[in-house]
């Protein structure tokens, strides 16, 4: 167990120490605030921007997508790089099991992703709370923030970290980028894709509707929420399975 915790801890530390991590975080926060900062013009442009829950809901639609792609990029070589640099040989020559190594990498990536998304939401929410021109109770911000951390960020982090760590270890990392890009383009180019298949919108699926709902459509589509949750967690977990099955990945004990 301690060896597993060591791999998780150092995976987490190594990723957090990358300057690019903070670049991705800064870029996504800035882009979110450019879109939703409670300035006079934005308040005139966006109807519900005075509501903290709507601000968080909106943050998950736009800036979070930038963070998603940045994190996918940063996580995608976590296992491949060990192979290239000789670190995998060194680790395999130590008394550590394949399960400890793979789980360490996956969970380290998951905690890292969760941390970055939490910071992303926390920074945005803090700026909103300080800058909004009306009096808002702190709890009005903390409640939707906490809901987002559990309802949205948790499954999204599983999806992003597991897929980004696991798939490039199985397929060529370039193919992984192509797959991600095709998915993104399909999503962006289809005018009604968001309505037909909201489950595959990584940070903006139906789960998001549990944080804020449009007053004109005050009902919850439980099927859509379940599909969204199943898609995120299911894809994440399924993508990790080939890692455990692939014999070439580890020494023959």
């Amino acid at each position: 167990m301690r060896k597993l915790l060591s791999v998780i801890y150092y995976e987490y530390v190594m990723q957090l120490k990358r300057i690019a991590t903070w670049g991705v975080l800064a870029a996504s926060v800035v882009i979110t605030l450019l879109d939703g900062f409670p300035s006079e013009k934005n308040l005139a442009r966006i109807e519900f921007l005075l509501q903290p829950s709507y601000f968080i809901y909106r943050s998950l639609s736009f800036g979070a997508l930038i963070a998603t792609f940045g994190l996918m990029f940063l996580l995608s070589n976590r296992m491949a790089i060990d192979h290239k640099t000789g670190m995998k040989q060194l680790i395999m020559a130590s008394p550590i099991t394949k399960l400890q190594y793979i789980f360490g990498k996956l969970l380290g990536g998951f905690i890292y992703t969760y941390t970055v998304f939490s910071l992303f939401l926390a920074l945005n929410t803090l700026v909103f709370y300080v800058s909004v021109p009306i009096d808002i109770a702190l709890t009005d911000c903390l409640v939707p923030f906490s809901k987002a951390l559990i309802i949205n960020v948790l499954p999204v982090s599983i999806f992003i970290s597991f897929i980004s760590v696991a798939l490039p270890a199985i397929v060529d990392v370039r193919l992984f980028y192509v797959l991600a890009s095709v998915l993104f383009i399909l999503n962006a180019a289809s005018p009604d894709s968001a309505d037909k298949m909201p489950f595959y919108l990584i940070t903006s699926g139906d789960l998001k509707k549990l944080i804020w709902q449009h007053p004109k459509f005050p009902y919850i589509n439980t099927d859509g929420i379940q599909a969204n949750l199943l898609f995120l967690i299911g894809c994440g977990l399924i993508s990790a399975v080939p890692l455990f099955l692939r014999r070439k990945l580890w020494r023959n004990d």
């Binding site: 640099t85 040989q89 060194l90």
Partner: peptide, 12 residues
């Protein structure tokens, strides 16, 4: 063990 080619984690 010290492998022939080893590039350690540069950020650590």
């Amino acid at each position: 063990y010290l492998p022939q080619e080893l590039s350690m984690y540069p950020s650590l």
